[in-house]
Design a protein around this nucleic acid. Sequence first.
DNA 1: AATGGCCTGGTG
DNA 2: CACCAGGCCATT
Length: 273
Amino acid sequence: MPELPEVETVRRTLAPWVVGEEFRSVTVLFEGCLEGICGKDLEARLEGRRVDALFRLGKYLGFSLDDGSRLVVHLRMTGRLIATESRDPQINAYTRLVFHFASGKALRFDDLRKFGRVMWFQDQTSLRARIRVGVDPLGPGFTPERLAAWVAGRRRPIKSFLLEQTHVAGLGNIYADEALHRAKIGPWRQAGSLSAGEIEALHRAVVSVLEEGVAHKGTTLRDYVDGDGRAGEFQTRLRTYGREGQPCLECGQAIERIVLSGRSSFYCPRCQR
DNA sequence: AATGGCCTGGTG
DNA sequence: CACCAGGCCATT
């Protein structure tokens, strides 16, 4: 499931390939993947525009275009953006949309579950009005002090807090569990109950697990691939996620699973308190 | 803050 | 055939 490391990997693989390209047309196979704009209008907005840069906002991937507008894609759970070519974009049963470029390149958006979304914004301001995400945990805005201020007084489980995108943007179910294990904090703990030391440890764990995720080009459990269609490698390094009943790699205790905020949470009952 | 809906393939 | 996976938004 694309979380920060996966979206960042897609951004890095697609950027050198797509920056400088000029949109020619858009083929919409599933109108439902568009949010706030219809296929006809999207094509009109994109035609002739060049891609200046690719950026990431939490789990959103954005294209900065040469007129100041922004094309934004959210892969949700099973979405894929694949670099291909207009002559043979290799459309399949899950292809929802294809962007065609003047050079003959094409960018295919596939999504088995139809949860992914494609949006267009006139400018950065309208984008930020719609995409409300907090600071990037790999950027300078994420500090132990700010983390402490955000969790202060919060009674919900720290795992649920980490899944909110409004303060720290980019963690999903997998990396949140992995970060909590590294920080030795139980996912059920009330966010506001963390000590200064635990907040420091959690901050460090979030940064390190995301950096490692990026270094290993993301986690592929099932659907995720990068812009070149390649799977990630971080799944081999997961310490808790999906490992219920298997021994903790730190202490050997069996990993357990509980449900928080309606989502599975995997943790080590000995290491995490 | 908690819940339901959006989706479909895979599993028990 | 029922149920689960899950990011995000709307609703309660």
